[in-house]
Amino acid sequence: MKKDYITEIRKKVGHDPIILTFAGGILTNKNNEILLQKRADFNSWGLPGGALEFGETAEEACKREYLEETGLKVKVTSLLGVSTNQIQHYPNNDIAQAIVIAFIVKYLKKDEIKISPETLALKYFAQNELPSIFNQQHKKLIKNYFSGNYPFFD
């Protein structure tokens, strides 16, 4: 049975601040609209992605999280950027410095898996029609994508 890394760490440190590494990416349709996920934890929109499991690469985590959260199999095509300056306060009182490794991904195919309950909705959005995004880090990733400023780091 695969252990959930964050759950195991949180059993030891409670809600204390920790550093976590996440991977995700931007998937676009033919109109250059980006796929966003309405997240259950914040009840707000963000990019699909999630925390790396122990021993997993960022690319593997990105592909796994896309499958779990969207039901889509994707291929990583390039690095979007690395963002390290977000202190995230979660609704359950967890605190983490989020290190995000973001990619540009390409759609391969839809899978018939059950989508994670972390996902309330999925929708493509044009640059000028973006909904409220749940944190500054995801806003920065989206802004850098649409401005063509990648790969970037902060």
Rank of each mutant, 00 (worst) to 15 (best):
A40H: 07
D41F: 10
S44H: 13
W45T: 09
W45C: 08
L47N: 07
L52E: 02
L52P: 02
F54A: 14
A58I: 13
A58R: 00
E59S: 15
E60C: 09
E60L: 10
R64D: 11
Y66L: 09
Y66D: 03
L67R: 02
E68N: 03
V74R: 07
V74P: 00
K75S: 14
K75A: 15
K75G: 08
V76I: 07
L79D: 07
L80I: 12
L80R: 01
G81W: 00
T84I: 10
N85S: 15
Q88N: 15
Q88V: 15
P91M: 08
D94N: 13
D94S: 11
D94I: 08
I95D: 13
I95K: 06
A96G: 04
Q97G: 06
I101T: 02
F103Q: 06
K106D: 10
K109R: 07
D111F: 00
K114G: 10
P117L: 12
T119P: 03
L120T: 12
L120D: 12
A121D: 15
A121I: 14
Y124Q: 13
Q127L: 11
L130T: 03
P131G: 15
P131H: 10
S132H: 14
F134L: 14
N135E: 12
Q137V: 01
H138L: 06
K139T: 10
K140L: 09
K143F: 01
K143P: 04
K143I: 02
N144P: 03
N144C: 07
Y145H: 02
S147L: 10
P151G: 15
P151R: 13
F152T: 02
